[in-house]
Simulated assay, not measured.
Amino acid sequence: MQRICVIGGSRYFGKLLVQRLQAAGHQVTVINRGAAPPPPGVTHLVADRDDETALTAVLGSRTFDVVVDQICYTPVQAAIATRVFRGRTARYVMTSTIEVYDPATAALPAVPYDTLVPEDIVDPATWLVRRDLPWHDAAYLEAHYAEGKRQAEAVFTQDSAFASVRSAHVLGGGVQEFTGRLAHYIERISRGTEIAVHAEVLPTVFIHYEELADLLLWAATATDFTGPVNACSDDPLDVRSLAAVIAAQVGREPVYRTVPAGEAASPFSFDRHYAMSNTRATKLGFSFSRTTDWLPGAVAEALEASAPRAI
């Protein structure tokens, strides 16, 4: 049994992670702002992670074997966490994102279109941190989400016991799926509404929300790697392949509208390349599923969630 603290963990795969940690027999503490209590038996601490004084006070003298940070988006938040948890934990795991590799948001080394991107393309140990930027501004943070994650990783990297899990695009979970991207395609294909795609769409990578919870459990409790690992199922897909799986269950062909390169399109239509490689996590011992195996089930679940309910 380990003492594990989860910051966030109130919805989607974070909520599932808490449940799985508890089921595995670990002593779990959840820190959030109090809107969603954790399951019975989980210690619940209510604090705003942006308030360093309040976070320090609510922790008291508690220490942990592992902290899993689900909701760190900026270098300022990371800096607060490093100060608050210094000396309180032996390991810190941050949930990061595939978007750190988006070449549209940073000057990154070029990779061939047929190359899955390894972790060292974005090395947090060498990334420039700018805490003076307006990270507190919601609009700025939304527009600079990927850079916020890159800089947060860079701050945490100062601690030798830090690891980050860079998640692919997460699907599955029916009504829990808060991005709404799968529902976006189901609705448009079902109604025959046009889907905006680029003329040349490039593949990206996905992960089922349950598999991501499993990987975070593994990263927190079953291994001691440091640095980033990519979390994605095998089998990259482009947007047309994704839509084809949905169309097969909806019973209606997608209607596409082509947009020029560089213009906005529907989610997962990419005219730039940043599909991740999961080689490092695989070599460390995690076994990934294939996107093509779980995607039909995720679509069926989303269809069921969107179906009208009888009164």
Rank of each mutant, 00 (worst) to 15 (best):
A138E: 15
T282C: 04
V28N: 07
S167G: 04
E153Y: 00
Y209K: 11
R166F: 14
D65R: 09
D238P: 05
L108H: 09
A244N: 05
S269A: 15
A275I: 10
A305E: 02
H184E: 06
I207D: 00
V100E: 01
D114P: 10
T279Y: 05
R257H: 13
G60M: 00
A36Q: 14
T292P: 04
S289N: 08
F270C: 11
W294I: 06
I186Y: 01
A78L: 09
E99S: 15
A139R: 15
N278Y: 02
L171V: 14
S10I: 03
E52Q: 14
P124Y: 06
W135D: 07
V165M: 12
V117R: 06
D224S: 11
Y274N: 12
L216A: 08
Y185N: 03
R188D: 07
V201W: 02
L17C: 09
Q70L: 05
P124A: 12
L202E: 05
E187C: 00
G9W: 00
R272P: 00
L237V: 12
R91P: 07
T279R: 13
T193D: 15
V250M: 13
S10N: 13
F64W: 07
A281I: 10
L303A: 09
L202Q: 13
P40E: 13
L108V: 09
A307G: 08
T105D: 11
R272I: 10
P38I: 05
I195C: 00
Y209L: 01
A35H: 11
V299L: 07
R252W: 02
Y274D: 03
T258E: 14
V170G: 01
Q2P: 00
L216F: 00
A163K: 07
T292C: 09
L116W: 06
Y73E: 12
N230K: 09
